[in-house]
Structures are given as structure tokens and as C-alpha cells.
Design a protein around this nucleic acid. Structure first.
Lengths: 244, 244
DNA sequence: GCAATATAGTGGCCCATAGCCAATATATTT
DNA sequence: AAATATATTGGCTATGGGCCACTATATTGC
């Protein structure tokens, strides 16, 4: 190394400039808490953008041969403890200007999980759920606001023609709760009868319980959960929004 | 640099191992030629995988601050001369094993363009159109067969619920040709009357010509092209396949 | 106990539209 | 002029979404 210039050294690594690409994975983890769409953010403890809220994620460990999806899954479990949620790749963004440390690229994933209490033993006070609108209003780190909006858009689209929002509920759930979840993620009200027709005819739900005190009044609702083996069918095209 | 070890030097660049990530963009460029779905491949002239066919693409120039989409657009124009086609990001794949030169990531784009003759002045004999099935049967470089299949899947999905296949035809075109394009990209036959109803009611086509010799017999067909200003509506959700 | 109220679930009509297939229109070929 | 080929349209039927009221079953308040 003594005889090399930096440029020569870098060229030996197939890098044709001083800039080295940084590869990271970021996650937009959505859930439904208090009937509202919420997203998990972490407060950055280091520069750059120290103190700002950001999507959870981090650099990809280049030492291990691991798929990007695996990397995302691990980071999801680190933050939430959830193992088998819905996790899908949304988009990748790369440029020289999005991170002051140099050219960087991030692969954005979207996760849908049931509401979980973050195992905030005490030291991890820098991670919390934010209602989506509040999260957007924050001065997020890097281009994470743009990333968050792209994930939100993907979520809205998927909600319109798949049954993915099932994953943001803790089973078992009632059909009314499920409809409220769809409405919140979709951003518009749905018709009760049509919703039930479509959901039940998709044959992905399983009637599990009979009753539900639910704190309250009114006729008890039937309880459902995702039918065993129907995980794949959640992706099937089921149009729920009125008048596409 | 004299006092640094390689590891220290790399750490200064925020790289925590000797492996440096390679960032590339690859394109699955689709068109319809001779009524068949075809894809553009280039024959690699250098190692690794020299002599094998591969998706067009290349490393991202880290010296310039350019969006990934811009990079893809430039590479598309280099190969085909086409400027304003449909171009969308499909997926990103990264791992240590997909390229023998080290950890690498590629961002896969899908392009839909009308059939163009490659300006093969003579030296560029290493680039040609392949019917999709033939391309899949080739021993492609790297993991490009997997990438090609993912792009094909995206194309099939988009064909089922958008009007994107319009872009693989050279305007003006007849409704019959358009239907044949949809059928080829979708992989199944469509009903004539239903197809025309949906396409015309989407209001994205403009009647441009009156007649078409078309070499042949039968009543001349009306000619259409994408209506000015309707480019956005091509993405709107229009279900064409029977019985979703 | 009974009426009022609240929520869950269902019945049933209307209408848009996809599927289907035949009829009509307009060209070339024989 | 008839046969043939392709384009375009007409029209019927069945499916299913939108809509809204009705029934079912619980709690609360008197």
C-alpha cells in the first residue's frame, strides 16, 4: 500500500473515482394503532443528521453474502421482534447528493405488521411509532420523507387491489375492524356490504371465535383470522375501491 | 496514505471490509416485433462471462450526480436511440455472489419501446433482439435470466391492469394490432368486443387515420395513436383480463 | 322487565359492464 | 357477381358492485 496513490488503490478495487458507494437498506414499517396508520421511526444518534428522525435501516454488511430481503428482514426483527410479516421491496434511490458522506444508494422496503409494543427496556427510547401525518411533518433525515411518501403510495395501491392490509391487524379481528383498517390505509370510506362480499368471497379468512365483548354494546361480532395456507392468496387481485 | 493500512483507509471511506460494492443498472428492453415479444440483449465482450448474452446496462458513474432513472434513460438511448418510451424501475438485486468481482448490486429497469432497427452500422453486431422464449433459453451472464424473468412478470402484471402495452407499437396502429399486442404480452386471448369497449372507454386513444392498406384484404381498419396529454392515463387501472 | 340504543350481519333491487356470438360493413380475390 | 377476409357494431345474458333498508343480538337506562 505504501507505493500506491489513493487513486491507484481505488482503481485496484474497480472504483474509478474517490467516491465509494454506500449501500443501505431502509424500512417503512407500517401498522395500525388506535385506528390510525402509524410508521416506525428512529432518532439518529450520530452524524450526519444527528437528532433527526429517520426510517430504520442501515448499511448492508458486505462481508456476508446475504440477499437484500434477508438484510431487511433482520433489521425489521431487530426493531420490532416481528418475524413473519409482509415485507416487500419498494424502490431504490441512489445519487451523490442524498448523503453528505458520498455517493450512496438505499433499497427501500415496506413492511406491514400488527401493532407491537416496542421492547423499550429503557435505553431504546430513540425509536417510536408516529402517526403517518405527523411523521411527514417532521424534518426527516436525508431523503427519508420522499422515501416515506413512496412507501405510502405503494401501500395505498396495494390496499386498493389486494388484501395486504390484513397484516396490520392483530388476529383475531372482526370484519368491522378490518374494514376500518382498509379505509384508513386507502383514505376513503368503503361500502359495508360490498366489502364483506369481496373479502369473504376471496376465501382467505377463517372464522375463529364466536364472540367479542369489545368493551361494549351492540351485537357481538364474529372473529376471523387469515386462513392457514392462504398467505399467498392475500396478493391476489381483489378490487375493493369503488369504481376503478 | 503511507501510515494507513488498507483496512484503515477503507474505514475512512466508511467501508468496513475489503469488498467494495459495485453498482450497476440493467435494462430489460421489450418490444413487439413480428407479433412476438422480443427483448434486447448484448453479447459481452469482456470478462467475466465473456461471450455470453446479457441485459444491456453498466456501472453507474459515481462521479456524476445523476438519478438512477437518468442513468437508465441514457443507456436506453445509447442502445436504441429511443428517447421517450416507458421506463420503470423493477427491482434491485444485490449480493456477494452474483458477480465474481465482488459484492455488487444492480437496479433493474424495464423499458417498453416500439420496434426500432438497431443502428447497427457494422461494428455493433454484438447487440440484437431476441424473442423472449429464445432469450430465456440462452445461458445468460450473471443472474440476468432471473432478472429477465422478473421483468417479464412485471410486464405481465402491468398488461393485465394498465394500458402500457400501447408503448410497444409504432403509432399509428389498428385496434386489432393493439389487441394482438395485449394478447402476446398477457399470454392469453382476449375477447374482441370487451377489449375494444375497455380501450375506447379509457379515452386515451385518438383516431388519426382513416385507412390502412395493410398489404391486404378485408375492410380497412381505423388507425389510432395515444392521445396527446393522455400519457399519464396509460397508468390508470384498466382491467382487461377476463375474470380477475 | 321493557324501551331505547348501539353494533353486527343479511336481503334484495338496480344497474353497469364483461362475456358471448352473430350481424353488418367494406375491402380484395377469383 | 360471388366468395373470402378483415373491421366494426348490435344485442342478449349473467355476474357482481352500489345502495339502503331490514333483521339480529347485545348493553344501558328507566
Amino acid at each position: 500500500m505504501v507505493d500506491e496513490t489513493e487513486a491507484e488503490f481505488l482503481r485496484r478495487y474497480n472504483i474509478h473515482d474517490y467516491d465509494l458507494p454506500l449501500v443501505s437498506v431502509d424500512l417503512a414499517i407500517f401498522t395500525l394503532r388506535d385506528q390510525r396508520l402509524q410508521v416506525l421511526l428512529v432518532e439518529r444518534g450520530a452524524h450526519p443528521h444527528k437528532g433527526r428522525w429517520a426510517l430504520p435501516g442501515g448499511f448492508v454488511d458486505l462481508k456476508q453474502d446475504r440477499e437484500l430481503l434477508d438484510t431487511a428482514r433482520r433489521k425489521l426483527q431487530e426493531k420490532t421482534g416481528v418475524r413473519t410479516p409482509h415485507l416487500e421491496q419498494v424502490v431504490s434511490v441512489g445519487s451523490a447528493s442524498r448523503d453528505p458522506r458520498g455517493w450512496s444508494i438505499t433499497i427501500l422496503f415496506m413492511a406491514l405488521i400488527p401493532p407491537v409494543s416496542l421492547q423499550g427496556g429503557g435505553a431504546v427510547d430513540d425509536v417510536r411509532w408516529w402517526p403517518f401525518a405527523d411523521a411527514c411533518a417532521l424534518p426527516l433525515a436525508f431523503d427519508h420523507r420522499e422515501l416515506l411518501l413512496q412507501a405510502r403510495e405503494r401501500l395505498r395501491n396495494k390496499t386498493a387491489y389486494t388484501l395486504l392490509p390484513i397484516h396490520v391487524l392483530q388476529p383475531p379481528f372482526t370484519l368491522t375492524r378490518l374494514q376500518q383498517a382498509f379505509e384508513e390505509l386507502l383514505g376513503e370510506p368503503l361500502e359495508k356490504k360490498s366489502f364483506r362480499r369481496r373479502i369473504l368471497s376471496a376465501d382467505v379468512l377463517e372464522e375463529v371465535g364466536e364472540d367479542l365483548p369489545e368493551g361494549g354494546r351492540g351485537r357481538p361480532a364474529l372473529l376471523y383470522r387469515l386462513r392457514r395456507g392462504a398467505e399467498q392468496h392475500v396478493f391476489s387481485r381483489v378490487v375493493l375501491a369503488d369504481r376503478l
